[in-house]
Amino acid sequence: MWQSILISVVAVVVALFEIPRLKKLKYTKEIWFFSFFLLLATVANILKFLYF
């Protein structure tokens, strides 16, 4: 349980680092892809911790 919270926090931190950097470069498409993949990865990790 606490691992999935931890991984969510890590994901949020990563997003807080990455998105402003991409925004500065005006890479809108990349922000969408990045967010999508990060969400996918985080969900997979949470599922792993909760169910497997």
């Binding site: 991984i7 994901a11 990563v14 990455e18 950097r21 991409l22 890479y27 990349e30 892809f33 990045f34 993949f37 990060l38 996918l40 990865a41 985080t42 997979a44 990790n45």
Partner: peptide, 9 residues
């Protein structure tokens, strides 16, 4: 921007 999501997954 892609490496972290890939590596974590």
């Amino acid at each position: 921007c892609l490496t972290i999501p890939i590596a974590i997954s």
